[in-house]
Design a protein around this nucleic acid. Structure first.
Lengths: 187, 187
DNA sequence: GATTATATTAAACACTGTTTAATAAAAAGG
DNA sequence: CCTTTTTATTAAACAGTGTTTAATATAATC
């Protein structure tokens, strides 16, 4: 039942957008009364949180994929792959990270969850920076700052690509040039 | 009357957040019936659009301030000032650019308006890049790509600072290091 | 002063999230 | 097998939302 509710909610979320995701529609789609939802969830917020949880797991997969490139010191393709994967995944970046930022802003629990999920990626980035000549003799704090800035660049680029609906060709070009420019920071 | 409605809406938006901005509350606050709103606006969307319009004008001021630094070729302080100004202005970045991104995503008119407002800033950035040695012999398209990436970096950084509620000290450090890293791209 | 245009509202419609109390179904215990 | 207890489900109501309609009051114009 819980799974059916979540699945119905996901369909409404991805097809009609978050503003059309209503508990009554969720219930109608699975042929139950609206009140049933409150037997499996405390409120609408919890349903969205559950969907968020699923999406966060997806982005961890993306991070793993890019981490493979980084471990081979192929930073450029790592960055390009990150932009490609992230802008292609409808769920997290489009419906959650962007469409639902207001909720994330307000509900610190979800935010911290997200930060915790991002943490491994940031730390992987830090250890990559540490072996770069440009950051050889810098403190851990400085390296983490640098990692955060790089992360911000990728986040901002991905967000803009999605918002402005950049086409595939320009997306590739943006990603590649971004990768080259970011690598310049390390020299 | 129109102004009174907008002012009431602004108060509710900034104090209670966009999810508590309701036409009935707007009307109640100015001691009128809810129906009056529909004599001056077609729908709730138009009220928010009007508030957005005001906010876009504010960000143009920010761009003008940073442009002064750029014209003196003081890129570092320009970047630092941008981050400082943008993360300090509650209205645009917090309530609009972030809290209301879903709306911006859906309503292309507002998006295009925003893009048009950003345009002068982007072009100013392009002309700054053109005089940099690193971009001397590159095409206009490549320079615009670079400008977009730099813009993305600043957007992403500002968004993260606001979302994660970074304190003033670390904000300054982030901004300064971001500025230095961005400048490295130009060499 | 009569007429036209503008401003304002009460009331209704169709939604929304959520709660409550009642009922149906299933599980557990004797 | 029957009773009791727990779980699942719902109809109905509450309070809120955006919006429309038709009626009324006010202001402007002729």
């Amino acid at each position: 039942m819980r799974a059916a509710i979540l699945q119905s909610a996901r369909v409404l979320l991805t097809h009609n957008g978050i503003e059309h995701l209503s508990i009554r529609k969720v219930a109608q789609q699975i042929d139950y009364s609206p009140a049933i939802v409150y037997h499996y969830f405390n409120n609408k917020e919890e349903i969205i949180d559950a969907l968020l949880e699923e999406d966060y797991e997806k982005i961890v997969e993306v991070v793993k994929t890019t981490a493979e490139y980084y471990s081979k010191k192929d930073f450029k393709n790592g960055i390009v792959a990150y932009i490609r994967l992230v802008t292609d995944m409808g769920a997290f970046y489009k419906n959650v990270m962007i469409s639902d930022l207001p909720r994330i802003l307000q509900r610190t629990s979800v935010l911290h969850k997200g930060a915790a999920q991002e943490r491994p990626a940031l730390e992987a980035l830090c250890s990559d920076l540490r072996v770069c000549p440009a950051f050889a003799n810098q403190s851990d704090a400085d390296i983490e700052l640098a990692a955060q800035i790089i992360w911000s660049t990728l986040f901002g680029l991905a967000t803009r690509i999605i918002i402005e609906d950049v086409d595939k060709d320009q997306k590739e070009r943006l990603a590649e040039q971004a990768a080259e420019l970011i690598l310049k920071m390390f020299r």
